[in-house]
């Protein structure tokens, strides 16, 4: 299958290894990955911060770029959530019905990585080998916007060598929330502290998730605590085969 990678602006600029791992993984499974070079950002941050006018332009650009492709995959629950649940609303809100229809159509072909692997490709065992103690944080938008359920966990359980340990209070938000982390920094930090406490309680070497943004938050907190726990994107765990710690 020909798959268009929607890398997301954050992974592209800050966490290229998450997008690279997505490519590695999909190619290993025998698929042809393309990267539409004109892609920039889905506009989620603008939408969620209230900047609807600028967001509309980003929605249009995103739709223009990805419309030619049959399957679009992103290593991000929240960016796919924005495409699926917000893009058409934004377009309709500014009276652009045509863009709203196009965005709604595109949304039906846009997948978060774990959804794509399980629902579209029908694989649970992606042939990964990762002999480390790992805990999984189900990010809010994957869990409650996309309803990915236990799909990421099913993929992780099939990884050879993995010591997967359950994260206590896993469904609790890490406190990132985009600009929430800046506008309500104190509350965000309090939420983060509890999330890190749960992560540390697992004795995991690696905390993984389907969103680079939440991982940037949790990882940033762990780094400040001088913790040795490493944040790794789900794609990186699933792409691993040689047993080394990426």
């Amino acid at each position: 299958m020909r798959v268009a990678l929607f890398a997301t602006c954050l992974a592209d600029a800050m966490f290229p290894q998450a997008a690279q791992a997505t490519v590695t993984l999909l190619e290993r499974l025998g698929h042809d990955v393309v990267f539409p070079d004109a892609q920039t950002c889905c506009g989620q941050m603008h939408i969620n911060t209230g900047y609807r006018r600028q967001a509309r332009n980003l929605v249009r650009h995103h739709t223009d770029v990805f419309e030619p492709y049959d399957a679009i995959v992103a290593p991000s629950g929240s960016c796919v959530g924005s495409v699926r649940h917000q893009h058409a609303v934004i377009a309709r809100g500014v009276g652009d019905e045509r863009l709203a229809d196009r965005a709604a159509q595109l949304a039906t072909r846009t997948w978060e990585l774990s959804e794509f692997l399980i629902d579209v490709l029908g694989v649970e065992d992606v042939g990964a080998y990762f002999p480390h103690r790992v805990t999984y944080h189900p990010t809010c938008h994957s869990l409650r916007m996309l309803r990915v359920g236990d799909k990421p966990l099913r993929l992780l359980r099939a990884v050879r060598g993995i010591d997967l340990v359950e994260l206590p209070a896993a469904d609790q938000c890490c406190g990132f929330g985009g600009t929430f982390a800046l506008k309500n920094a104190g509350t965000s930090a309090a939420m983060l502290a509890d999330k890190m406490g749960h992560v540390l309680a697992t004795d995991a070497e690696v905390v993984t998730a389907g969103d680079a943004s939440c991982l940037m938050h949790i990882g940033g907190g762990l780094s400040r605590l001088e913790s040795a726990v490493r944040p790794l994107h789900l794609a990186e765990v699933l792409a691993a085969t040689d047993g080394s710690r990426p």
Binding site: A7, D12, F15, P16, G220
Partner: peptide, 17 residues
Amino acid sequence: AWTAARDLPEPPAQTFR
């Protein structure tokens, strides 16, 4: 407000694209 409680990783030498 971010760095009050969190670090940021160093931007990578090479972007994905």
